[in-house]
């Protein structure tokens, strides 16, 4: 029978290998599951208007809504996806049709749409965004600005097939 050699070197090597295996084991399920889809946020769909038109910008602009659209699982950027945006701004209430507009994502899955400055309404300076084109499951987001003075707001979509 071979005696088990327990030197400092073998101990460190074995422990290192065990740690590496453990870490890999913990990471593997996460890799298999991949990027999780974004759930809709509470109140995200409030004052949504289906079919808002694609616009150059909403109203007179001055504020930038930016974001990304990716596919759940592999995280691939999704080009040409329609994202609708609406908010209470210096030019109108959330319910006003002219407060709504849509844009398409670029080849790298990003989007940016100029709109009027968002102002606090119903207690928070916030915006609403919708992915509602049907290829993927519908998602409504309601991001809140850190400060009412911010002139930009960002929202990320991770979509799963409908």
């Amino acid at each position: 029978m071979t005696p088990i050699l327990l030197t400092r070197r073998t101990l460190i090597a074995t422990a290192g290998a065990a740690l590496a295996l453990g870490a890999l084991g913990l990471r593997l399920p996460a890799l298999a599951q991949g990027l999780a889809p974004t759930p809709s946020m509470r109140g995200g769909a409030n004052n949504y208007r289906p079919g808002a038109p694609i616009v150059e910008r909403i109203g007179n602009g001055g504020f930038w809504m930016t974001g990304t659209v990716r596919r759940a699982g592999d995280g691939a950027p999704l080009p040409n996806q329609r994202i609708q945006v609406w908010a209470h701004t210096v030019e109108g209430h959330e319910r006003d049709p002219e407060s709504h507009g849509a844009t398409l994502t670029a080849a790298d899955g990003t989007f940016r749409l100029e709109m009027p400055q968002i102002v606090p309404a119903f207690g928070q300076p916030h915006a609403h965004l919708a992915y509602d084109s049907g290829d993927f499951a519908t998602v409504f987001l309601r991001p809140v600005m850190r400060s009412a003075k911010d002139t930009t707001l960002h929202a990320d979509f991770v979509l799963q097939p409908a």
Partner: peptide, 9 residues
């Protein structure tokens, strides 16, 4: 009157 869905929520 201003925003019905917000008040329903």
């Amino acid at each position: 009157v201003t925003s019905p869905p917000d008040v329903i929520d």
